[in-house]
Amino acid sequence: MSITLRVFLILCSMISFILCIRKVKQSKLKVTNSIIWIIGSFILLLTSIFSEAVEWLSQKLGFIAPVNFVFLILIGFLLIQVFIDNMRISTLSEKIKDLNHAIALKEYENEQKNKAKE
């Protein structure tokens, strides 16, 4: 890996780390959700520091360039994230639907009560 790429990766990892911590402090991100991003930024940092190990491993796995291996790790990481997010959205959607139903049923009940009073 070239020196420029390594510096770039270290910078990226630092920026994502700082951003993550700041957002948690501003309570715009939950602590449990932030952990995966912090792990991600550590992976970036490790790949740029121990680039020899990455080069060795990528050669063993048959990659033409070590940087391709780094990209593969990142893409895999992102895919997992997207999948987890999709699951979360589905659960949230179900919860909103249940709330929607609960509110409607409650309102209906109240209306019936009001009608009975009249």
């Binding site: 909103i96 139903h101 509110i103 049923l105 209906y108």
Partner: peptide
Amino acid sequence: LSLPINYGLTSGIQVGMKY
């Protein structure tokens, strides 16, 4: 019975079934 958010036919039938 009036739903506060539009959620599609499926949700409509489901709330009817709950009722």
